[in-house]
Write a protein that binds this DNA or RNA. Structure first.
Lengths: 232, 232
DNA sequence: AGTTTTATCGAACGTTCGTTCGAGAAAGAT
DNA sequence: ATCTTTCTCGAACGAACGTTCGATAAAACT
């Protein structure tokens, strides 16, 4: 019953290692096509041993999604306190989403692509966070619209705009290669530009403050250092 | 060996009925979570009987995807001959994609969501059509950009713009309800507006010719009439 | 040292899966 | 009416699946 720091940390780090590996395989072959034997093989943990760290395959998916959503939300809410300017806040939001996506492609792909692979309570909990996140984005868009005179604003439906933005951002798991030549900064700048002022339309670079592009340091959702093998 | 019209038609119509049902179930529960027994139950065709109409479960998915892509491409190429104005062509392209999507939600969801569920030759063939489609869209965007002076154009990366547009359009299966209050016209207008002139930015309604909204007649990919049950 | 807690695993269980086979019914042709 | 082709299906097969159990090893604690 006495949980010393070392034991607690050991268990947690190995669970995290399993989750990280599982996320990678889920992203590669899809949740339903991945077997517990796949995860066993890749982690080096025996098939039965996995069930010491989770109650079911479902729970692995849940832990990945819940953790992932928690981190994005957490970081977003921290960032949004930085400024009160609606356009700048929206740019922060896009930057937060895309840089986190790029730094955690596997987990975010699992989050986007396996949204309906859970059922029951677990599905409810993840869906709750998704709705919460959606509301934050919708609110941010509404703020931008309201900060404008009717003349400087496009007559775009708020719901469509919200999901269009999500579509632009979440679709990247279908084509973007984080290792490739195109950096996260390019992604953020282009998508923020596209969404705000469109493919044609007038410039808004001053407002978006793209003259000195921000640093986009990778933000990994897992705490532990990379562990190639967990053989003790 | 003598294939009379009636026999040929009978076989084809039943295969189509199976494909249509399979597409619906694939869309509902995902390809890998759908069993041949599910399809058997919903179609009323016995488990073994299904294999008279297809060689494998893979082939069912392939036939749906191949058929679906074929139809969109076919219709798009027909429509694109209507005009030479780049902006109008792009609007046509968006309208074509979204109205087809809305009229064939199940099939298009299967196309978007199960893009990597096939392997080997079948995957190659569908991927080929996808690349072809992507090229057409990319070309259309390039034409729009080239028709503009540098001043009237946003400095947006062509690859990012292409996939951002696909993201906006394909993401709708995650939220849009074709039976709901929001019509396809709303979808097309808003997304075309958003993509071309952005959430802020200047108007482009004249160019997009939104004053008299076009008719968006449902275009169903299957030829046959609706068949509730195939009991003969 | 001994005792308790934590961690690991081989072997197996029951289920479900995609697919096959051969017999037979239905439909069409002559 | 007879023969041929087209179509259907119950029953079964082998493989793979998620999960469990009891034994055992490793680690931590006293």
């Amino acid at each position: 019953m006495v949980a010393v720091q070392k034991d607690f940390s050991r268990y947690d780090r190995k669970l995290e290692f399993i989750l990280r590996t599982a996320a990678r395989i889920f992203a590669e072959k899809g949740y339903h096509s991945t077997s517990m034997r796949d995860i066993s093989r890749e982690t080096g943990v025996s098939l039965a041993g996995l069930y010491y760290y989770c109650q079911s395959k479902d729970e692995l998916l849940f832990l990945i999604q819940d953790n992932c959503f928690g981190r994005v939300l957490e970081r977003l809410e921290g960032r949004l306190t930085e400024t009160h300017d609606p356009v700048e806040r929206l740019r922060l939001l896009i930057e937060n989403h895309l840089s986190f996506f790029a730094a955690n492609m596997a987990e975010m792909k699992v989050l986007s692509h396996e949204a309906d692979s859970l059922a029951g309570e677990m599905h409810e909990k993840v869906s709750g966070k998704k709705q919460q996140y959606t509301q934050v984005v919708r609110r941010a868009l509404a703020d931008v619209a309201e900060s404008r005179t009717e003349k400087d604003r496009r007559p775009v439906d708020l719901t469509i705009a919200t999901f269009a933005l999500f579509g632009m951002m979440n679709w990247i798991y279908n084509w973007y290669d984080p290792q490739g030549a195109m950096g996260v900064s390019d992604l953020v700048e282009n998508i923020a530009r596209l969404f705000l002022s469109g493919f044609l339309g007038e410039a808004c670079d001053e407002e978006l403050n793209f003259s000195n592009p921000a640093e986009h340091e990778p933000f990994h959702m897992w705490r532990g250092t990379k562990i190639e093998s967990m053989n003790t």
